[in-house]
């Protein structure tokens, strides 16, 4: 049987890309950095009629600070085709959103980060990626564009299941918007195998305007957030040791962890309790010492 060879669509403007996206829909696989797409093709798991690359669209790779959002806070706008490496090395991001720069620097190896994009890692919705949990905790949103116009989707509502997003087949993810971290933010990546591996358990903890938001990644089909557990820390800064432990234990009990090569459900549950507690301890320390944000590997 003759092998089907996909068409290569390489638009040079966003307008052209949106037209192709509308015309082909699910027939064309979008290619950003192509790391995930490349692996699927190598393994024969993906045979699309066409490949639609965004690589030739320079207007999709940028990092900009918008003066202020409705609440008077600056907003970071990241073009979907910005690579992990460009983000992690940007002085703009390192200064204003250090936890973001540090978290992207924890992804895989420099090779993957040179290729993988900020839009790709979100559109991918892989349960074992690092940035989604952090971006969820930071209350980031994405811009989804189509010929019909644009929608602003909170990351929390973008990733809806295992490799599943709420993007429509005629939409492209064009931008990620990240509000200022405020009081403090931490990200902890717990690996069970090797330094360049994906996380076994990932914990992002952010405090904004006195409210705590803890999001646990890599343990279930999508990032896990329990507002009612976080509410226990309402008005508590610093979070005292017993409360940090309690929040950790409650997260561990609330999550139904998956089992995979990085750890069994039982193991993950125990690690979640410890890593959530440690994240809260880190957060206390950061807010006390610098009133800023930092990461912990």
């Amino acid at each position: 049987m003759a092998r089907h060879i996909p068409a290569w669509l390489a638009p040079t403007s966003l307008e052209e890309a949106l037209e192709l996206r509308a015309r082909y829909g699910e027939e064309a696989t979008v290619v950003a950095g192509g790391t995930f797409v490349g692996i699927l093709m190598n393994q024969g798991l993906l045979q699309p009629a066409a490949l639609l690359t965004l690589r030739q669209i320079p207007q999709l790779a940028y990092l900009r600070i918008e003066d202020a959002d409705a609440s008077g806070q600056p907003l970071l706008r990241i073009g979907a085709m910005t690579t992990h490496r460009a983000l992690e090395r940007s002085p703009l991001v390192q200064r204003g959103w250090p936890v973001l720069a540090a978290t992207f620097a924890l992804v895989a190896s420099p090779r993957v980060r040179n290729q993988a994009t900020v839009g790709g890692v979100l559109a991918d919705a892989d349960y074992a990626s690092d940035p989604p949990a952090l971006l969820h905790a930071l209350e980031a949103s994405v811009v989804a564009r189509s010929l019909q116009g644009e929608r602003l989707i909170p990351v929390e509502e973008l990733i809806i299941g295992h490799y599943e997003t709420s993007l429509r087949p005629d939409e492209l993810l064009t931008e990620v918007r990240v509000p200022r971290t405020m009081e403090g933010a931490v990200y902890r990546k717990f690996r069970s195998r090797s330094s360049e591996d994906r996380p076994c358990v990932a914990v992002a903890a952010v405090r904004r305007r006195g409210r705590l938001r803890v999001v646990v990644g890599a343990v279930a089909e999508r990032p896990q957030y329990f507002p009612e557990i976080c509410a226990l820390a309402e008005g508590q800064a610093p979070i005292e040791a017993a409360l940090a432990r309690e929040i950790g234990e409650r997260y561990a009990a609330a999550i139904e962890p998956i089992s995979d090569a990085r750890g069994s459900a039982h193991y993950r549950r125990r690690v979640i309790a410890v890593e959530v507690r440690r994240a809260l301890e880190d957060l206390n320390r950061i807010i006390a010492t610098e009133g800023g944000s930092q990461r912990h590997a």
């Binding site: 490349g38 040179n114 360049e196």
Partner: peptide, 21 residues
């Protein structure tokens, strides 16, 4: 994309040629 045996530099930066279309 894991092992690095297929590394080349693309615009001066290492990438895995095994997963680069």
């Amino acid at each position: 994309g894991i092992c690095g045996a297929c590394t080349a530099l693309l615009n001066g930066q290492p990438i895995s040629t095994c997963i680069l279309l």
